[in-house]
């Protein structure tokens, strides 16, 4: 396969970037998308050019490190997978592929296709945990968890924190990410003590980080490689309303 790539190149956060065109002439349909970029990079290095920087790590769809807007879709054309799981047989010979970084204000570009997603960590720091210090736990079976609750919790906990939701959202909102954590912990009995304080803190931090708001469009869920449902957002909303009625104020450190 021969492909043409239009890739976003940007030296660092303070210089403007541009789309540059590169040929990818020796592409096998069995390659993964990132392996295709590896090959392009090997050629660039030998030509004395700077290789394309992109984030990746596990290359099996679980670490959440890889990103990329491929032809304008977060994680590319196939649903429910990450970029690293995408294979070149999903493209046609001769195709031109546009590759861009995640674009959202709270994800500043570091270089080329690499962005800074620490804003997500700060949202978790605001309350995306259960305060259970090591050693304080009762027996694992002391508190039964109804299977449907455990399953719903697991559905939400599958979030890999890749940021596709915020990158795909026309509003630049991180709601699906935040809601996934709220739902993961909120569906479990262990998560009840901090449930409302958690949602208030996390929403306040998410706003402070500069993410947009949710208008229930659903683009996030449509690109989510782990198929996190919009139900989680409804749950976050419900918890926030209850928290407001209870008069819970955000405590942000």
């Amino acid at each position: 396969m021969k492909l043409t790539l239009k890739v976003w190149r940007q030296k660092n956060g303070s210089t403007p970037g541009e789309l540059k065109t590169y040929p990818a002439d020796h592409v096998s349909p069995d390659m993964s998308f990132l392996e295709m970029l590896d090959e392009v990079n090997q050629a660039l290095i030998m030509q004395g050019e700077d290789p394309i920087a992109f984030d990746h790590d596990c290359r099996e769809g679980i670490c959440g490190m890889c990103s990329l807007m491929i032809n304008g879709v977060a994680h590319g054309p196939k649903e429910a997978i990450t970029t690293c799981q995408l294979h070149m047989r999903s493209f046609k010979d001769g195709e031109t592929i546009t590759i861009e970084p995640w674009r959202a204000k709270p994800f500043p570009i570091i270089k080329d296709l690499v962005v800074d997603r620490e804003s997500f960590d700060r949202i978790i720091q605001a309350g995306g945990f259960i305060s259970a210090s090591t050693g304080s736990a009762p027996d694992g079976n002391a508190i039964p968890v109804a299977k449907p609750d455990a399953d719903k919790s697991m559905d939400a906990a599958a979030c890999i924190g890749c940021g596709a939701c915020a990158a795909a959202c026309p509003n630049g909102s991180a709601m699906l990410f935040t809601a996934a954590k709220v739902a993961h912990l909120g569906h479990l009995p262990q998560g009840q003590a901090e449930r409302h304080q958690r949602v208030v803190n996390m929403v306040a931090t998410q706003d402070a980080e500069g993410f947009g708001n949710c208008t229930n469009i659903g683009e996030c869920a449509a690109v989510c490689p782990k198929e996190i449902s919009l139900d989680t957002i409804a749950m976050l909303n419900r918890d926030l309303v209850i928290a407001a009625l209870k008069g819970i104020e955000p405590v942000v450190k």
Binding site: F129, I130, A132, T134, G135, S136, A137, P138, D139, G140, I143, A150, S153, M154, A157, H184, L185, H187, L188, Q190, G191
Partner: peptide, 10 residues
């Protein structure tokens, strides 16, 4: 025990 308390959805 610790993981259950932390909210690991086993």
């Amino acid at each position: 025990d610790q993981c259950v308390a932390q909210g690991v959805p086993f």
